[in-house]
């Protein structure tokens, strides 16, 4: 008798968990809380982050709007946020967190949104032509040589973004001031660096 009751309780517990898991809304708010442990509910929309943000005037979604969208738990809005240019315009200057009265780590949230946007291939078109290729050129430079070299980096970026003529006027001055070293062989621990890249970034 007791045994049967025990079984029923166990079963109902299991089912409740199953039902919860299937119905738990798959929103940015939930993901954010479970993956990096930041609760968006702590934001009370004072707007200090956006007031101090140097990029706010160029953003569609200013930092406090980003927080509001996450709080709203609306899948459609989440997708719009992930495919916005705003998240890529964040310069990671950390002004927002230093002024936030609740000390919400908005730069960390922005990092998370950018990584999520790449994972789900939702990157904004404009960012995909300028900011993202620059990051990729930068990382590729490290992947193959262990360090970043401005000459190679800028050349690689020019090819990716197809802005060949950009900054050409700076070259003679930079050369005469000894600011453009030649391409190097790379560091000794190149293999180690490549292994780090292999384990952290899956090649697309």
């Amino acid at each position: 008798m007791y045994y049967a009751l025990y079984l029923i309780t166990l079963l109902s517990k299991y089912m409740a968990k199953e039902i919860y898991q299937n119905n738990a809304p798959h929103t940015l708010n939930n993901d954010l809380f479970h993956e990096i442990g930041i609760s968006s509910a702590r934001c009370y929309q004072c707007g200090k982050c956006s007031a101090g943000c140097p990029m706010a005037e160029d953003m569609n979604y200013t930092p406090n709007t980003v927080m509001r969208i996450i709080q709203a738990e609306d899948r459609q809005m989440d997708l719009e946020l992930l495919s916005s240019e705003s998240i890529w315009l964040c310069a990671s200057c950390e002004m927002c967190i230093s002024r936030c009265p609740m000390q919400i780590d908005i730069p960390k949230i922005m990092d998370y949104l950018r990584q999520k946007s790449l994972q789900e291939r939702l990157q904004d078109k404009a960012a995909n032509k300028s900011i993202i290729p620059f990051h990729q050129s930068f990382l590729d430079m490290i992947r193959y040589t262990g360090r970043s070299y401005e000459v190679g980096l800028v050349l690689d970026f020019k090819l990716r973004s197809k802005k060949i003529m950009q900054d050409v006027d700076l070259v003679p001055k930079m050369l005469s001031h000894g600011k453009l070293p030649f391409l190097p062989d790379g560091i000794k621990g190149k293999k180690n660096i490549q292994a780090i890249f292999k384990r952290t970034l899956r090649k697309k």
Binding site: S92, Q115, F138, L139, L201
Partner: peptide, 9 residues
């Protein structure tokens, strides 16, 4: 670039 693309990296 690294913290924009991957936290672990």
């Amino acid at each position: 670039a690294a913290h924009n693309i991957s936290k672990k990296l």
